[in-house]
Each structure stands twice: as structure tokens, then as C-alpha cells.
């Protein structure tokens, strides 16, 4: 994987939301994504983890330009999409697709499965007649493990796992190079989750796709990802190869987050000493001044409360923590 080319390069990306109530109130800004930089290679799965409200979904959505970034750049195959607009943006979307979290809400209940999968092909003018499109839909249904005769059915006739397969087929319809998977398995049952994860892996191998895999289920993310980024309060606190991050976490937040995962083995789970974090995630409207994690960090020093740490390279990894600065 090392000699692979960079397909997506995010630099100093910021996405802010204005949540000011009424014109006379003081301005309130949620810094959902605050100065995040990372690269994704070709054929790679980049896992993005964090608790709710850490900005991982916003980051994923900003990358496909569902949200307008405040500043920073998103370089996809040499072009900066952060500044793209109109027709250019539409054309770019052919290369980058998204799979959504909720398979019940992301499929139009009034369209048949065939129409749903066909729609992106029509928008991007991929085939000039309906016959070819229909053939392609049948092909896609087979790839994602559904039957060709499902084409005339409505989403309501499918189970959650099957609907997620339809969502995957729709994302694949335009032959993208990059897919943002926004918690694609968290709404599914355990036995179905594994089906979808394996399907995503197979498709990746076959079509040479890159994934940005957003999730809060850390064990699944480790399983599917080559590299992992850990987010906290809009910032990327640690980034590195999946196994390294799991076995030798550097940032105190990663350490705590990992020790919080319930291990499915009674012998390990009952003995395991957890690092239980005190308190909760601070509000992103008023984040701590220094390091975002300083209010809960067991190792925080005075400096952490004043100065925001800059990501530095430690071996294979990037960590934003004062502990590792020399």
C-alpha cells in the first residue's frame, strides 16, 4: 500500500455552522470541523472514529461538498473541490459517492429499486438509452447480492441489510473512485453488519475503490480500515495505521476511547481495567481554549489549557498532543 498515490488530500479544512439565535443575540459558531488535514491513498480505507458530536460526519459530508467548507482545501486528483461550483461540481460528483447511515431514510419510498439505482446514471448521462441502464442495474444488483427481479420492487419490501445493499448499488452506479461511507452499518443487526462489511471489502478489491469509513463502532473500524483518524471536538487528535493506533495508542483520548470498548470475551472483559473518562464532551460552541481534550485528560498540564497542540509526526503517526513534543 505504501507506493500508492494520494487520491484525496485535505488541508486545514474548517467547517463552521452559525447557530446564532435571533438577530440581537451574540454570534454563536459551532466549529464542527476545525483545522483538519489528512491524505487518503488509492485503494485505501481510511477509518474515521469519534464520539457523537466530534465532527466526523460533518467532515465526511464536507468532503463530498454536501456542506460548504469555511476555509481550507480538498484536493481530489489534483483539483481543489473546496472552491468548485455548478457544472464542475456536478461532474466531480461522478467520481465521489456516498453511502448513508440510515437505509430507511436514504431511499425514496416512492421509487422502485431500479429507478433509485438508475437515477445517478441519468443525471450523469452515463448511457444513452434505458435498455443499457437497465442492464447495468441488473449487473449492479448481482454485485451487491440482490436478485435481478428485485428491480421492480419498492424499498419497503426489503430488510435493513438489503436496503443498505441498494444504497451501495446506487453509489456504484456511476463507477466512482472514492466512496464516503457514513456509518453504513450502525443501523444494522450484528449478523447483517458482517455481511455488509464483507461486501464493501469485496467491491473495493474488485473495483479499486478508496473509502472514507466513518463510524463510532471502533472494533468494526479497525477491522475494515488500513489507517485510522481519531477525532475529538472537531479536531483530528491521532492518525496512523489501524493496528498501531489500536495496540499502541499515543493520544490520551485514543487510549481512553479504546479502553472503553466492551470486549466480547468474558475472561478478558471482566479482568480489564478501564480508563473511565470523567465528564462529558464539552460543547463545540465554547470549546476549551487549549487542547480540546484538556478538560477530561488525566495527563493534562497547565500548558494544555493554554496552547492548542499542533499535530506532529511520531513514527508512523501524527498526534496532536503536547506530551510528544520535544
Amino acid at each position: 500500500m505504501s507506493e500508492n498515490k494520494v487520491i484525496l488530500s485535505v488541508r486545514n479544512l474548517k467547517t463552521y455552522f452559525d447557530v446564532t439565535k435571533g438577530i440581537f443575540s451574540p454570534r454563536q459558531i459551532v466549529k464542527a470541523v476545525d483545522d483538519v488535514s489528512f491524505d487518503i491513498m488509492e485503494n485505501e480505507t481510511f477509518g474515521l472514529v469519534g464520539e457523537s458530536g466530534c465532527g466526523k460526519t460533518t467532515l465526511g459530508r464536507t468532503i463530498v461538498k454536501l456542506y460548504e467548507p469555511e476555509s481550507g482545501s480538498i484536493i481530489f486528483e489534483g483539483k481543489d473541490i473546496a472552491k468548485m461550483k455548478g457544472k464542475e461540481l456536478t461532474a466531480f460528483r461522478k467520481d465521489m459517492q456516498m453511502i448513508f447511515q440510515d437505509p430507511y431514510a436514504s431511499l425514496n419510498p416512492r421509487m422502485t429499486v431500479g429507478e433509485i439505482i438508475k437515477e445517478p446514471m441519468i443525471i450523469h448521462n452515463i448511457y444513452d438509452n434505458d435498455k443499457d441502464r437497465e442492464d447495468r442495474v441488473v449487473e449492479l444488483l448481482k454485485i451487491v447480492g440482490l436478485k435481478p427481479d428485485h428491480i421492480r420492487r419498492y424499498p419497503a419490501e426489503f430488510s435493513g441489510g438489503q436496503r443498505q445493499r441498494v444504497g451501495i448499488a446506487r453509489a456504484l452506479a456511476v463507477n466512482p473512485k472514492f466512496i464516503v461511507c457514513d456509518e453504513p452499518i450502525s443501523a444494522l443487526d450484528v449478523s447483517i453488519q458482517a455481511q455488509v462489511v464483507n461486501l464493501l471489502k469485496d467491491i473495493q478489491k474488485e473495483m479499486g475503490l478508496s473509502y472514507l469509513f466513518v463510524a463510532h463502532d471502533l472494533s468494526m473500524v479497525k477491522h475494515i480500515s488500513d489507517r485510522i483518524g481519531v477525532m475529538y471536538l472537531g479536531q483530528m487528535v491521532e492518525l496512523g495505521p489501524a493496528n498501531d493506533v489500536y495496540h499502541r495508542p499515543l493520544h490520551p483520548y485514543t487510549t481512553a476511547l479504546l479502553s472503553a470498548i466492551p470486549i466480547p470475551d468474558p475472561d478478558v472483559a471482566k479482568k480489564k481495567q478501564r480508563i473511565v473518562l470523567e465528564g462529558e464532551v464539552p460543547s463545540p460552541i465554547n470549546p476549551p481554549k487549549g487542547c480540546p481534550f484538556c478538560t477530561r485528560c488525566p495527563k493534562a498540564t497547565e500548558r494544555c489549557h493554554k496552547e492548542r497542540p499542533v499535530p506532529i509526526e511520531v513514527g508512523t503517526r501524527k498526534v496532536a498532543c503536547h506530551l510528544y513534543e520535544k
Partner: peptide
């Protein structure tokens, strides 16, 4: 079909 993060082998999940 659940992955145990304690294991490191790249074993596929069996759904």
C-alpha cells in the same frame, strides 16, 4: 461475525 479488536489477524468476518 463480530470482530474482536484484541485479535490482529486479518481474518475475514464470517457473516
Amino acid at each position: 461475525c463480530i470482530s474482536n479488536p484484541e485479535n490482529d489477524d486479518e481474518q475475514d468476518l464470517t457473516p
